[in-house]
Simulated scan of single mutants.
Amino acid sequence: MSFPKRRRLEPHARRQEIIEAAERLLIERGADVRVEDVVRGAGAAKGTFYLYFPTWDDLLDTIRQRIFEAFDRAHPMPDTANVAVDWSVLLEELAVAFVDATVEMGGMHDAIFHSDFAQRRAIPAADHPVNRLTGLIRAGQRAETFAAVDPEPTARLLFAVIHETADAVAEGQDRQRALAAMRRMLRQSLGAKP
């Protein structure tokens, strides 16, 4: 029996190949993916996996950070010192982007954010969507765009609305109707103008 010859890759390229294989598999299969699946998908040895990721959680942590970084690159926060910001429009744009990104993640979303891993390794405070939303509400209040609501509990409730909208769209509900209802709830909750 002959085995295919392994390709020689630079360490950073091999690590990247493992990450990308894991992301593909997680999107397709969610939390059912194992190390063996990833190394098979990457064409790497199991030992190679552990050179780059001492534990499965280390790989998932890396993927989670990549998700946040990709979102931030695609949707950067404006430099408020140099640009006037329409906070209600920005909030709605970010909410829609979150819904779309969540749907595109498929099974990876649950594996990264709703599995045992998510319980073992909490999202860093700076990256947590509720904290980000709280900061956005406060900024909108300083600009006198949003009503005088308590930012943190309001952010928690609004994140639940945004997340449920993503779940509804992922389950096949009409995207435009779901987004319209979400936008309406965001505006009404924050006293923003339609």
Rank of each mutant, 00 (worst) to 15 (best):
Val38Arg: 04
Asp61Cys: 05
Phe53Val: 10
Glu92Ala: 10
Phe68Met: 07
Leu51Pro: 05
Trp56Lys: 15
Val83His: 09
Met77Lys: 02
Ile63Cys: 05
Leu91Met: 14
Phe68Arg: 03
Phe68Ile: 02
Ser88Cys: 14
Leu59Asn: 03
Asp37Ser: 08
Asp57Gly: 08
Leu90Trp: 12
Pro54Leu: 12
Ser88Asn: 15
Ala31Val: 02
Arg40Gly: 09
Gln65Phe: 06
Ala70Lys: 11
Lys46Cys: 11
Ala74Phe: 10
Val89Thr: 12
Leu60Cys: 07
Ala74Leu: 07
Thr80Gln: 02
Thr55Pro: 05
Thr80Trp: 01
Gly41Tyr: 05
Arg40Asp: 15
Ile67Asp: 07
Gly47Asp: 14
Val38Gly: 03
Gln65Leu: 09
Ala95Arg: 00
Phe68Pro: 01
Val38Phe: 01
Asp32Asn: 11
Tyr52Pro: 06
Val96Asn: 10
Phe49Ala: 10
Val83Trp: 01
Phe68Thr: 03
Phe71Trp: 03
Ala70Ile: 04
Ala81Pro: 00
Asp86Phe: 04
Ala95Gln: 01
Asp57Tyr: 02
Arg40Val: 10
Thr48Leu: 05
Glu36Gln: 13
Leu94Lys: 07
Asp32Lys: 15
Arg34Met: 06
Pro78Met: 07
Asp86Cys: 09
Ala44Arg: 04
Val35Arg: 08
Ala84Lys: 13
Phe49Asp: 12
Ala95Pro: 05
Phe53Ile: 12
Ala44Glu: 12
Ala97Cys: 03
Pro78Glu: 05
Trp56Ser: 13
Pro78Gly: 04
Phe71Pro: 01
His75Gln: 14
Ala95Cys: 02
Arg34Thr: 08
Asp72Leu: 03
Ala31Tyr: 00
Gly43Thr: 13
Leu60Glu: 07
Ile63Ser: 10
Tyr50Val: 06
Val38Thr: 05
Asp72Cys: 00
Glu93Ala: 10
Val83Gln: 14
Arg40Ser: 13
Asp79Leu: 02
Pro54Ala: 15
Asp61Ser: 15
Glu93Cys: 04
Asp37Pro: 00
Leu90Tyr: 13
Arg34Gly: 02
Val85Gln: 08
Ile67His: 04
Gly47Phe: 05
Val35Phe: 01
Val35Asn: 11
Val85Thr: 15
Asp37Met: 06
Gln65Tyr: 03
Gly41Gln: 09
Gly43Gln: 05
Glu93Arg: 11
Arg73Lys: 14
Trp56Val: 07
Asp57Trp: 01
Leu91Val: 00
Pro78Ser: 07
Ser88Leu: 06
Ala81Trp: 06
Ile63Asn: 05
Tyr52Thr: 14
Arg34Phe: 04
Ile63Val: 14
Val89Phe: 06
Thr55Ser: 15
Leu94Ala: 07
Leu51Tyr: 14
Arg66Asn: 04
Arg40Ile: 06
Arg64Tyr: 07
Gly41Ser: 10
Pro76Arg: 08
Ala81Asp: 11
Ala97Val: 09
Ala74Trp: 09
Ala45Phe: 00
